[in-house]
Design a binder for these strands. Structure first.
Lengths: 348, 348
DNA sequence: TTGTAGGCGTTATCAT
DNA sequence: ATGATAACGCCTACAA
């Protein structure tokens, strides 16, 4: 069923039918009625592909993330989806498994499919040529969660450093001086050797932590900053390694909820009690953080709103408007529960 | 940059350029080289929209779910995404908030955008005309997680009843006779009044439970079967209500991980200890189930595989092949941890 | 107000 | 092997 069919059925020309159906231009009431009736009778539905072809707009936006199964992106996705739907946009979602090559392909293909705009959580802060191309060619682009210093595209995320600093100071206030940071960030086996890291959201956490440490006069120990804690086994190994240090940490900051989960699992196997043996603060206030034993002190992030904001900024860009700002950071907050305690006597 | 530009640059006709670019038909090596070089030089990228228009294939599938933020669908989505990507398909994801009207609109719009196939987790077992239309009009359709009795479309989900039965019997084996079931299913305030329910995946759980009860000679108490436990407050109310019964349950089966979370929260507020005061089994083995206090006994579901299977069945359908079966159920299993204990003395 | 005709960028048909 | 030309289904001048 095409416009031509409807036009024939209604006894008018294609253009008239098209106008009546699209609700634009000038059409007599009588003609419109006939066309609409014919369309109804024939069960006509417009071919959005054809429509997109000459309007140049697909009413679709592309979203590229590393891991949709991760609750963080699931929630952000929900925010993006809700905001996009309100504006009449659909979403093509691509999962890259945090693989840059997959991200590059995805961005290209999405553009080939003529999405009107792109929201990307870049897998790497180094391999960014593809995103730079997108931005420079004038395609609306919003970076999600992660920032790329050298790329002046709009980025929407969380202002996590102040909260990281507050979390660190909360730890210090309980007497902790050996404070570790554990992240899942891939670093190709490298040890910590300075900022920035490959993913800005992790860099920001560390910046806040180091700041908190410096302010309280606590020396920074590179051996307490650990990466590549992905999966239960590797995380277990990282924790075991940390605990075997001559001066083991008495408190640990966990970079995200997945790391937190695996660390808690490792603690259970190792017979470590929180906060008796070691204090813990995790980034990201997942729903289950309140039912762990003990309830976990966390840095809460407005993830849903990050998604909504990212979509809304993209919509502004797509309308040809200027962005609200090139870097938008929503506030994070420390939610104090019971996983921080005083330094254990034996460890002092 | 269009095929025409490339053709001109290479000094050949559009058709030849198109053949060389598309890698089909017969093209001389020399012509191909010239075309490819020209395309490279011009930075040519095909317009997938135009391509879709006359092939009739968009290499895109539509996925409609109720709640992407729910870990269950997030994981299924990952499975779908991985399988689809392997076959070269992209995914348009629509979230309906479990609203049937939104689902109807989504299905229509997706078809208008000419997706090659549809995977839907139907919000309702009653309002299904739109899905029937899709199926009868010959569009490849796979139902995810939930079945619709009167619709002969392929459905992929979990064979949950046997596991539900096993869970129930495990409870009975510990002496429980007052066994409740709590679900978030919306029933418009109605109390339980027989099967089937509005969502087949919940029906299946209950079927298994009732079967387990009957086999062990335990009478079925409708007042122990509760719905509409969505959100912390409502769930708290449901639990309080259950516990206030003259013969309160000594064990509770939780329909999904979100319900489980809220129930655990309610228990904590009410000072209820698991399994001392009440035993618990939850459906869905979420990652955090192993770190609750105590670790939770759950019915584990191969959710990722459900997603993969759904996508693969859809791919079969899209290739014009017959489905493997009209109803595919992957096996679930009872994972015994420590949330089941003997009936409390005071409750006997 | 209505109709005619051309174009969007591909692929596909049919001669040559 | 290659080229001209017609679709695909819609929108949109422009003309009537």
């Amino acid at each position: 069923m095409t416009v031509a069919d409807v036009a024939r059925e209604a006894g008018v020309a294609k253009a008239t039918a098209s106008r009546a159906l699209g609700g634009y231009g000038a059409v007599s009431d009588e003609a419109r009625d006939r066309v609409l009736a014919a369309a109804e009778a024939l069960g006509y539905r417009p071919n959005e592909l054809a429509r997109s072809m000459n309007t140049g707009k697909s009413k679709t936006i592309g979203v590229v993330v590393g891991d949709i199964e991760n609750g963080y992106f699931g929630l952000a996705m929900r925010g993006i989806s809700d905001a996009a739907k309100r504006a009449g946009y659909d979403i093509i979602l691509v999962n890259t498994s945090e693989d840059v090559e997959a991200e590059i392909d995805a961005v290209r293909l999405l553009l080939d499919k003529r999405v009107d705009g792109l929201i990307v959580a870049p897998a790497s802060a180094y391999r960014t040529e593809h995103l730079r191309e997108v931005h420079q060619s004038g395609h609306p682009l919003v970076l999600l969660d992660r920032r790329i210093e050298s790329l002046p595209a709009v980025s929407v995320g969380v202002d996590i450093a102040p909260a990281a600093r507050a979390a660190t100071r909360a730890l210090v206030a309980e007497g902790h001086r050996r404070i570790a940071f554990v992240s899942a960030l891939g670093t190709d086996g490298e040890r910590y050797s300075g900022l920035p890291l490959g993913v800005s959201s992790v860099t920001d956490r560390l910046v806040g932590i180091l700041q908190g440490l410096e302010e309280t006069g606590i020396p920074i120990s590179p051996e307490l900053i650990r990466f590549e804690a992905h999966g239960a086994e590797k995380t277990h190994a990282v924790i075991a390694d940390l605990l075997a240090l001559s001066e083991p940490p008495t408190a640990i900051l966990l970079s995200d909820s997945l790391v937190a989960l695996n660390v808690l699992l490792a603690f259970r196997e190792l017979g470590i009690k929180v906060p008796r043996d070691v204090s813990v603060v995790a980034f990201d206030d997942v729903d289950w953080a309140a039912i762990t034993d003990p309830p976990m002190t966390v840095v809460s992030q407005p993830i849903y709103d990050v998604g909504v904001t990212a979509a809304e900024e993209l919509l502004r860009l797509m309308r040809g408007m200027a962005p609200d700002a090139t870097t938008l950071r929503l506030p994070a907050a420390l939610v104090e529960r019971d996983s921080i305690g005083p330094v254990a006597v034996s460890a002092q």
